[in-house]
Design a protein around this nucleic acid. Structure first.
Length: 591
RNA sequence: GGGGUGGUAGCUCAAUUGGUUAGAGCACCGGCCUGUCACGUCGGAGGUUGCGAGUUCAACCCUCGUCCAUCCCGCCA
């Protein structure tokens, strides 16, 4: 049963050796007299040959995904018969003994598909995830993750961080995402929450004097899923004492150049550029700009308000904005392409999309030309930086919507023009986030980051005086190719300020005491200034691999309904189990 | 909660304007084949067209409902 080599080990230099191998049958080719089979394991593939009456009757019966063990001799392939697609392609193993260790039914997934894209739908893949995971290219993802984590540990240990575990059974707190709840059997009617992140624990570790903490932390959020969002996911969670923003960001500048560049083998950025949130929103219409390409956005409100174009004028006069973008080299966009873009930005609330073409001589051609003077059209062209051969697009509306919709338009044009090269890695720090955002649905201000984030020191008084709109936070996000891969902040370490922030968020003194009392109290016993950052492990992997979905970097992910088709979780439980945890069900009526 | 797309053989897909026997490739089963490597070749089996109603002489196709998946908005850092 022992194997002398794995399936990727044998080379020309091994010719003549007697070896034993074990693995899965990737593919069998029966030529009548001689039978070939590709044997596969985690390490690779090798072709084995059956050409004697002792073994061929058994080799006749093997099928895809059978697990076999063979003994044989390494032989050179006949000249011209080498297979350059295999690392082991210079040799064969001539089999002298074969044992079938296990049979396999025909697999419902094409594990041996030669191209690295799987066409099976996700539901099927997740139902048979253990087969899906046999595909070499997806194993490669998990192996890469494992190797990456090794480097992560090495980096933080080298920099004096301690790896400390924090509870999975936590206290449910308001703010942030919806909690996953766990009923307590011994405390009837009480519930734990699974952590959305170890935020409070890591801050308490700073108060405890641990100075530098990191953890590969599992986080849970009961919100609707996306391709890049799972109900449980992993963060590289970090916190440091006696630091300022520069110290935390500097640590992660090093992390990028020492860990990410090493694992993914790309050149370290000279310095990761920084951009204030307000600038990111204006120039890119996003708090996570993809700076791999230009197509920057300009505000043209002051120009269009002079025109006779009612739509734009009214928007600006009622407090809205008009944003424009020069789609470089897109003058030939068809009517249909423009219609598609119009409905695309409609998803983000844009009521319409105004387009203008810049002709060869530089003159501007547009359907709405009669509402503008030539000077105004030229001013628009120059404001967005359009040249002959470019198409200009404009979106009007309330600032938040117009900004976002134009930003999404920019990304879509980038996709259409193929400007998103996954081989290019552009990191960016976005800083100076607003401390609070007004939530229409909640009817109150909410923390942009989380309620433990400190305001900029120069904005503290502003905040204490109740000006939440203009108050900026000591927060920073790390962005890679337009994906937010991490975020952090300098934390509040003054109990009075922390209490005040909770109150500004609408919590009563009683609620603060009940939900966060222990936390505020902790700061009364000598809390050091501290701050930190958390990186989304799965997103870092997916983004650096040029993938949109994090699912292929998680061994057993959930589907969009947060369930697992493989083991059918979540699932109902016995009445006795419910009784033990003092729960009675109150299910929604089915129509 | 809302919108888009999809659901046909084990898998991936096709099926003209609604038209009579729902096809192909892969996989599977059987035959042939001694250098293939996505082997080839001959043959065979395999279908509640997601589910339920309705329209029609006739429904994979049209209508309504419903379930599931997926992508997105809201939500979520």
């Amino acid at each position: 049963m022992k194997r002398s080599h794995n399936c990727n080990a044998l080379r020309k230099s091994d010719i003549g050796a007697t070896v034993t191998l074990a693995g899965w049958v990737d593919r069998r080719r029966d030529l009548g007299g001689v039978i070939f089979a590709d044997l596969r394991d985690k390490y690779g593939k090798i072709q084995v040959v059956f050409d004697n009456p002792e073994v061929n009757p058994i080799a006749d019966t093997i099928r895809n995904e059978f697990v076999i063990w063979i003994e044989g001799t390494v032989i050179a392939r006949p000249a011209g018969m080498e297979n350059p697609k295999l690392d082991t392609g210079d040799v064969d193993v001539m089999v002298t003994t074969i044992k079938i260790l296990n049979k396999s039914e025909p697999p419902p997934l094409a594990i041996n598909d030669h191209n690295e894209e799987c066409k099976e739908n996700d539901d099927l893949r997740l139902r048979y995830r253990y087969l899906d995971l046999r595909r070499p290219w997806i194993q490669k993802n998990l192996i890469l993750k494992s190797r990456f984590l090794g480097e992560v540990h090495a980096f933080f240990r080298k920099n004096g961080f301690e790896e400390i575990e924090t509870p999975i059974l936590c206290k449910s707190t308001p703010e942030g995402a919806r909690d996953y709840l766990v009923p307590s059997r011994v405390n009837p009617g009480s519930f734990y929450a699974l952590p959305q992140s170890p935020q409070q624990y890591k801050q308490l570790l700073m108060i405890a004097g641990m100075d530098r903490y990191y953890q590969i932390a599992r986080c849970f959020r009961d919100e609707d899923l996306r391709a890049d969002r799972q109900p449980e996911f992993t963060q590289i969670d970090v916190e440091m004492s006696f630091v300022e923003q520069e110290d935390v960001m500097g640590m992660f500048d090093n992390f990028v150049s020492e860990v990410l560049c090493k694992v993914w083998n790309f050149e370290a950025p000279q310095a990761i550029p920084r951009m204030p949130y307000s600038e990111a929103m204006l120039r890119y219409g996003s708090d996570k700009p993809d700076i791999r390409f230009g197509l920057e956005i300009s505000d043209v409100s002051s120009i269009v308000v002079q025109s006779e174009f009612g739509v734009f004028k009214n928007v600006v006069n009622s407090g809205g904005v008009v944003r424009g973008i020069a789609a470089t080299g897109c003058v030939e966009f068809s009517r249909k392409q423009i219609d598609d873009l119009t409905s695309y930005v409609g998803r983000y609330g844009a009521k319409g999309l105004v387009w203008m073409r810049v002709k060869d001589g530089g003159e501007v051609e547009t359907q709405v030309g009669k509402f503008f003077t030539v000077d105004q059209l030229n001013a628009l062209r120059d404001a967005v930086g359009a040249k002959a051969g470019d198409m200009m697009f404009f979106i009007a509306g309330p600032e938040k919507m117009a900004s976002n919709a134009t930003g999404q338009l920019r990304l879509e044009i980038g996709r259409i023009k193929g400007l998103m090269n996954p081989k290019v890695r552009k990191f960016l720090w976005v800083t100076d986030f607003p401390m609070f955002e007004f939530s229409e649905s909640e009817g109150r201000y909410m923390s942009t980051h989380h309620p433990f984030t400190a305001p900029l020191p120069e904005h503290l008084d502003m905040m204490l005086n109740g000006n939440l709109k203009d108050c900026l936070a000591h927060a920073y996000d790390l962005v890679l190719n337009g994906v937010e891969i991490g975020g952090g902040s300098i934390r509040i370490h003054n109990p009075d300020v922390q209490e005040k922030v909770f109150r500004l968020l609408g919590l009563t003194a009683e609620q603060v005491q009940e939900k966060f009392g222990f936390f505020v109290d902790a700061f009364k016993f000598g809390a050091p200034p501290h701050g930190g950052l958390a990186l989304g492990l799965d997103r870092v992997l997916a983004t650096l691999e040029g993938q949109d979905s994090i699912r292929d970097f998680i061994a057993f992910p959930k589907n969009t309904s947060a369930s697992s088709p493989m083991d059918n979780s979540p699932s109902p439980v016995d009445a006795e189990q419910l009784q033990e945890v003092h729960i009675t069900l109150n299910l929604p009526k089915k129509a």
